[in-house]
């Protein structure tokens, strides 16, 4: 946290005027194109690649809205900090929950052949000394 004295106008502070109309329209068109792309991609049989393609297109669209429509591009460093915090804590949240579900059946020892499972009537198992100290 830089120790900038706060009341003088912080250099990267938002200089209080909005972007140009032409910029917004181009971003709008880009979003429409990406929407069409993601819908088209869903009709193409991509098999395993469906999910990564759809997610990456959605991320690009979200970035476009964030950077231009929400003035993050010209915004102060604090706004970037907030977006970064949201990003990494959401990933912490999803990845650690995912880690549990992914690693649930990593290692399962194969069950013993049946005759070992069923209790053998007569012999006393060697591993059980009379009484542990």
């Amino acid at each position: 946290m830089s120790a900038h004295a706060h009341q003088q106008h912080d250099a990267t502070g938002h200089h209080d005027e909005a972007g140009s109309v032409k910029l917004y329209v181009t971003i709008f068109v880009a979003l429409l194109v990406l929407t069409a792309a993601t819908v088209a991609a869903s009709n193409v049989p991509l098999g395993r690649w469906h999910i990564p393609v759809a997610i990456s297109i959605a991320v690009i669209k979200a970035l476009l809205v964030l950077l231009f429509f929400m003035h993050l591009l010209g915004g102060s460093r604090l706004q970037w900090l907030v977006v970064a915090a949201a990003g990494c804590f959401a990933t912490i949240f999803v990845s650690l929950i995912g880690a549990d579900y992914a690693s649930r059946d990593w290692y399962l020892p194969p069950p013993a052949p049946l005759e070992q499972q069923i209790w053998q009537p007569a012999e006393i198992p060697p591993s059980a000394p009379a009484d542990k100290p």
Binding site: P111, P113, L114, E115, Q117, I118, P121
Partner: peptide, 11 residues
């Protein structure tokens, strides 16, 4: 499980 073993339990 008993189907996948050889003989079912002796008892």
């Amino acid at each position: 499980k008993s189907l996948s073993g050889q003989a079912a339990s002796p008892s």
